[in-house]
Design a protein around this nucleic acid. Structure first.
Lengths: 242, 242
DNA sequence: TAGTGGTCTAGACCACCTG
DNA sequence: AGGTGGTCTAGACCACTAG
């Protein structure tokens, strides 16, 4: 049972996406929407603040709330922290396109200094190391290296790595939600090895995203690097003041 | 007079940064901190949620709130939406390093289709076009192109563009705060022209950030592209669930 | 069981915008 | 003046974690 403000957020989001109001049009006031959904203003505000963060509405003090123009897209948008939950690559894109994975490597390795620091475990402790090439509609678009905390998931079926969603598998086996994802975005060029895995020329631009993913109880379970073809991905970011 | 939760956020942030608690240590509970600052839990929670978003603390249901390890840095972090306000390049970095600008171009141009759409004005309406090279400690690190709504700031002194902070100038002359910044991050390679302006080799990687900046009354006043040397900048992103 | 964060209510007052 | 979002109070109950 999701929180009331999440339900309301999704309900209003659905209304916006189904063009209940025109772009730029004023939507009902907080007080009206609160009454309509049978909640107080504070609860409704939590929902609306999320929609503002997601870039669907604009809130203007003294004026009201307005529908924002939806952003058009030619390339894929990496998760920018505007959805309810961290999806992971598979869940993020499987609605939009046929995604698949090629498992390059899966073994247990002792954690080095960097990995152990990010996973908050002792250096030398064995962790899963996984390298996968991810494909969208059969075309390789990124290489992802993951170091995964073995105490969170002792075994990872290869089937999951090749066909399923790892995050879904983890949420299922641990019965805990994913709660936190901290990432750093950098630009770089593809070198020979990674370019080879993606069948592209070395020297092409990449968006490198590295980060740590945690469960709701604070356990860090995944430290990852993904090397994305810059011609296939963008990252959107909304900043809302106050 | 800033809101109470902003003051409290900054006060606790200061405590964290001055090592009042160790990294990983539990800080006082919401109820304690609320009593200490003389506010209710909801108000205190707004402050703590911001600190969580900024990556300074971790909130774990049933356990408490914990200080997060501060991130170490070798390169400059572009604004990731975790500060109170959009600073702009000058304000963002002038505490950390000697920043300066080289004004390449400043003229009025009719807005083309893209610019007019982002600034929410009519096509053909004249806008400021500004190209600047930004330097950190005397080294050119990025090229920024800005299209600025002339109805928001009719004239822009060249002195501001070369020495001061444009955003500060705009907040001052309009007496409105900057409220919204929506950006898209892409990776690319430097071509001859931009590489020449930065005195680097063409083909080096860039982080391209484009976006729109708005005032608190919803007026879009700046549409910009910045071409950042990827070896000088990173972008940090925190995602917190729910 | 006691303590923690997560959610929600039913008000209130303020700051801002428009006619 | 009337409507809008922004902030805040003083409670309440729930869900999760620990000993």
């Amino acid at each position: 049972m999701a929180a009331r403000y999440i339900q309301i957020k999704n309900a209003i989001k659905k209304q916006i996406l189904s063009n209940t109001w025109q772009v730029g049009e004023k939507i009902p006031s907080e007080r009206e929407l609160a009454a309509e959904h049978g909640v107080t203003r504070v609860t409704l505000q939590k929902a609306m603040h999320m929609l503002e963060q997601e870039g669907l509405i604009e809130r203007i003090h003294g004026k009201g709330m307005f529908v924002t123009r939806a952003i058009e897209d030619d390339v894929f948008m990496l998760n920018d922290g505007t959805s309810d939950s961290v999806q992971g690559f598979s869940r993020e894109f499987r609605e939009q396109a046929k995604i698949s994975s090629r498992l390059i490597c899966h073994q247990l390795l002792p954690a080095d200094k960097t990995v152990s620091r990010h996973l908050e475990i002792n250096e030398g402790e064995p962790v899963h190391f996984i390298r996968r090439v991810r494909l969208i509609d059969g075309e390789p678009v990124l290489v992802e290296d993951s170091w995964i905390n073995r105490s969170v998931i002792p075994v990872i079926p290869s089937k999951i790595l090749e066909e399923g969603s790892l995050y879904e598998y983890i949420e299922h086996t641990t019965s805990k939600k994913i709660k936190f994802y901290s990432s750093v975005i950098e630009g770089d060029l593809f070198g020979d090895e990674l370019a080879g895995l993606l069948s592209i020329q070395p020297g092409r631009p990449m968006l490198k995203v590295s980060g740590v993913t945690k469960l709701e109880d604070g356990t860090a379970f995944n430290y990852s690097f993904s090397y994305n073809r810059a011609d296939k991905f963008k990252i959107k970011n909304n900043w809302v003041g106050k």
